[in-house]
Amino acid sequence: MDILLEMLEKDARLTPEQIAIMTQKDEGDIKAAIDSYESRGVILGYKALVNWDKTEREYISAIIELKVTPQRDRGFEKIAEKIYNYPEVKSLYLMSGAYDFQVILEGKTLREVAQFVASKLAPIDGVISTATHFVLKKYKDNGCVFKVPEKDERINSI
């Protein structure tokens, strides 16, 4: 049921009942499909997209490019595992091109992030080099533009 995934990807707060009505399916079937997606790891979670810049909380994110030497028997997997197990790591991608891993880190301060790179990422076995880029401003994330929703400007009309 790809349509179910598409609908939830756009709005995770839709209830199984609402989805069932909108797709003319049985609510029980929708629930079962969602359960199955969850247990198979197709649906990994449901989260609010937060713009921390609008809150009091101190917040910074950075993109780190890592070059590594793949290990003989397990390729990149072992190094990846070491990296993604840190809760500070928000995303980790294996990349084609000039470097191997892209790490997205979030922390409270610039110093905290820099510290993490120096003391946790750089020393990992197989890591050859790191390049850290701090995010100055987010405009769009996960398909959402960072702006206040516009008021409905449509006039009442027949």
């Binding site: 409905d152 449509r154 006039i155 009442n156 009309s157 027949i158």
Partner: peptide
């Protein structure tokens, strides 16, 4: 004049109304 205008004028002056009146795409 379109009879509904009066109704819409009242509506325009009210706050906190949940409207289902518009005749154009969102």
């Amino acid at each position: 004049p379109s009879g509904i205008r009066k109704f819409f004028d009242i509506l325009d002056d009210m706050d906190d109304v949940t409207s289902l009146t518009v005749g154009q795409p969102d």
